[in-house]
Design a protein around this nucleic acid. Sequence first.
DNA 1: AACACCATCAACCGCGGAAAA
DNA 2: GTTTTCCGCGGTTGATGGTGT
Length: 226
Amino acid sequence: MGRSPCCEKGHTNKGAWTREEDERLIAYIQAHGEGCWRSLPKAAGLLRCGKSCRLRWINYLRPDVKRGNFTDEEDELIIKLHSLLGNKWSIIAARLPGRTDNDIKNHWNTHIKRKLLSRGIDPLTHRPINEQTAIHSTDKVLSTKVLREAVKTNNELTCINHSNPEGEKYPELNLELRISPPSSHPSQIVEKRDRRVTCFYCSLGLRNGKGCTSGAVEVEHLSFCA
DNA sequence: AACACCATCAACCGCGGAAAA
DNA sequence: GTTTTCCGCGGTTGATGGTGT
């Protein structure tokens, strides 16, 4: 019944990783590749749980991890994405090559929050602090489930921005994000086209330039092109 | 120099969903 | 169909270094 136990939790190290542990993990993954975190520690001769190995590799040891300060461009992109997605760090990280969710989360909490506050913007709602209303951050962000599903199914996010119908690279934050039915509802698609719907990812400069104006599927606040 | 406070960030914890038995 | 574990995620903590008094 069920799977075998994950790891021998009684015999695992905790705390900061040593240089030797790092080297062992790197050597093992270079030889065998990523994956099967459960069996990795034993196979690599590490007294760590698989979860800890995964975290260490993904956040610090992976060769494509970008270290060092965030650029202003990265900051602005994070702010824009956060205003639309909320604390969906992994989804935001997927749009910043070389940055990890943990990295972005830390950077948000230590730098960007303060940056926004100094501009008089609430980091939760992305609205001017003196205009705060009963709007809650959760009112305007997508559920994790919806977003992950969109990514899984290769759908795209589309935003409808009445104030900016031409779709500038970074639309203003008063986006009206909405959900439309799937392509089986052509009238909705025509309506979207008439309103010059701008692809969410394209509008942020996040995609590779493919058009995505047809077959939109809108769920909750954002729409996804089929 | 010693101490307190603050900022940063690596790492852990707990949870939910997916997958395996 | 149920139970158990794995995986990935977001929230939080704690160690460390820097700065101010």
